[in-house]
Computed example of a mutant assay.
Amino acid sequence: MTAPLLPPPLLPPADWRDFLALTKPRVMTLVVFTGLCGMLAAPVAIHPVLGFTAILCIALGAGAAGALNQWYEADIDAIMRRTAKRPLPDGRMDRQAALHFGVGLAAFSVLLMGFAVNIPAAAILTLSILFYVLVYTVWLKRRTPQNIVIGGAAGAFPPLIGWAAATGDIALLPVLLFSLVFLWTPPHFWSLALFMKSDYAAAGVPMLPVVAGERMTRTQIGLYTIPMAAVAIAPWPVGLTGAIYGIIATLGTALFGWMALVVTLRTRAGDADAMKPEKRLFKYSILYLFLLFGALVVDRWLS
């Protein structure tokens, strides 16, 4: 006679901080900022209440994408040191709760954007969530070293959403801002992947340093920095921004290019602790986007 199967032990109710952690608040900060700057750079003013609602929807949509990403990747998050303490791999939350939270948050953000702001902004927000969850997380990340290249589009949508929330359409400037974030993502993320290579290898994630080696990754960082620099400066010579943005973008991009060149030309570092140039590039790349998007808004207001 076989023993009866016992139900799995119930996890304690998740704390509100665990739900907040699911939304990846650090990543959300940059997403919200670029979306806000896209909205403020638009040629028409949006009502403050509608503007606040649009930014709230962008934040909720980004949080939903982060939650669904962690729901799907709980197995590999448990292997990697950088992610092992997240709510799901650490056993502080049930996967079903994370799934329901992510889906509910996504639906609410899109519906609120559509009803309160406008349909174009809601459509782009929907596309950004689906792209991050289905294209990057489910399809690309575990299958190809080009995952972050194609998947980088997901994080590039917020300026388009912010602009569309204010104007109801899309123009050349937000397309350039989208392209900037899209081209910025590979050097930004690969600089992180270089000193997190062992974690990705252990989790079986085919990040470029794992499958192609450090030399190829460094070369690709340098190659992607070139078109990124061109797109970053482009709004000034084509007359979409003034000298304030142009000068700050030129100087900030020159520093990014120098740091990327140091990483590109560097020989194999040997271990993560020795990778100071890579860590500096990763940290500066975040500041770089804040700097450029902030300069864009200041330029708009003072021009």
Rank of each mutant, 00 (worst) to 15 (best):
L130D: 06
T267G: 15
I58H: 13
H188F: 03
V211Q: 11
Y72Q: 12
E278T: 02
I161T: 06
L127T: 12
L50P: 02
T225D: 11
W16R: 10
M216P: 01
L20Y: 04
I233V: 14
A98W: 00
L112N: 06
A62N: 13
A154Q: 01
I233K: 10
A74C: 04
V32T: 08
N118C: 03
G242A: 06
D90T: 00
A122L: 06
G155M: 02
V31A: 10
V297R: 06
T126I: 02
T29E: 14
D18N: 07
A64L: 03
T267M: 13
T34M: 06
G213P: 04
N69V: 01
N147A: 09
G204C: 05
I161K: 08
P187F: 08
P227V: 08
P158M: 07
I233C: 09
E73K: 03
L20R: 03
A59S: 13
P120A: 08
L180A: 13
A97G: 03
D273G: 11
P187G: 08
R266T: 11
A203E: 07
A272I: 02
H47M: 14
T225H: 09
W236H: 11
L56M: 14
V110C: 11
A166R: 03
S128Y: 01
P159Y: 03
Q146S: 11
F182M: 14
L192R: 03
P43Y: 12
G35R: 02
F290M: 13
M207T: 01
I244Q: 06
A3K: 07
V263E: 12
T23R: 04
P89D: 12
P48C: 12
W139N: 14
I233T: 02
N147L: 01
R17P: 02
A201K: 09
I124K: 07
Y72M: 12
V263K: 09
G61P: 02
D75L: 02
I170R: 03
S303D: 07
V181W: 00
T83W: 02
T217H: 08
T267A: 15
V49H: 09
A123S: 14
I58G: 12
V44Q: 14
M93S: 04
R215K: 13
W190R: 00
R300P: 10
T53S: 13
F189T: 05
K24C: 06
I286F: 15
L88P: 04
F101N: 10
A154I: 00
T34Y: 01
M207K: 01
T53I: 08
L111V: 14
E73T: 01
I233S: 09
T144G: 10
W301G: 13
A54H: 06
L281G: 05
T23C: 11
L240C: 09
I170Y: 04
Q96D: 14
G114Y: 06
F101W: 11
W301M: 14
M28N: 15
V262P: 03
